[in-house]
Amino acid sequence: MIQLSGLSKTFGTQQVLKEIDLTVDKGEVVVILGPSGSGKTTMLRCINYLERPDAGEVRIGHLAVQGKHPSRRDIHQLRQRTAMVFQQYNLFKHRTALENVMEGLTVVQRIPRSEAREISARMLEKVGLGSKLDHYPGQLSGGQQQRVGIARALALNPEVILFDEPTSALDPELVGEVLEVIRRIAREGITMIVVTHEMGFARDVANRVVFMDGGVIVEEGQPEEIFQRPREERTRQFLQRIMPEPNYSI
């Protein structure tokens, strides 16, 4: 279980997170929606301390990490229990697809190379890249790179995978293949927190949708609730702007 409590963060004079509380259960897929600047990416990045909150607590299972200056060891443990998929993929450019996936296994988890290779090849197979093991990121399309990024996260067998707008940098025709992979692993019961603008995806994959605006969680609930009967005016306005087509079926 992942629990965020009282997370606050200020950049300069702008407070981007205002005492956020959020609990995510094991196996849950939580999609975070919100206009840009609402603090959703910052919140996600606070979960593995790529961004340091000014105050608050991140708890994963029994590990609780607090405030702006937790111990190095705590941060390190937090990161070992999480994995992240980035908007810009961030694959290690000087490593092949296989080596990208192996890196965390051999260096961080200290799994023997042969075993790590086997796990990594299996993960790449799973995201449909079994034939691209020895390709460098520069030789792969955006969609393929992002699928390697997902395999890299998956291989670590983390307690939660954090997706930071995984399809936002992709050409439109490549979005589908990446969403399909995420959808597939969501069904396997892996805990995921996904920041995205893909409404259709949010609707069929999420167990829960969280809507953020202005650094606070405006409302959260089942996807049907949020998309069809939003309680808050701000949610309604946002959904109307992003999905102009009528929200009913005949």
Partner: peptide, 8 residues
């Protein structure tokens, strides 16, 4: 960031 995120 990618390296940090995998726990290096």
């Amino acid at each position: 960031e990618a390296a940090q995120s995998i726990g290096m």
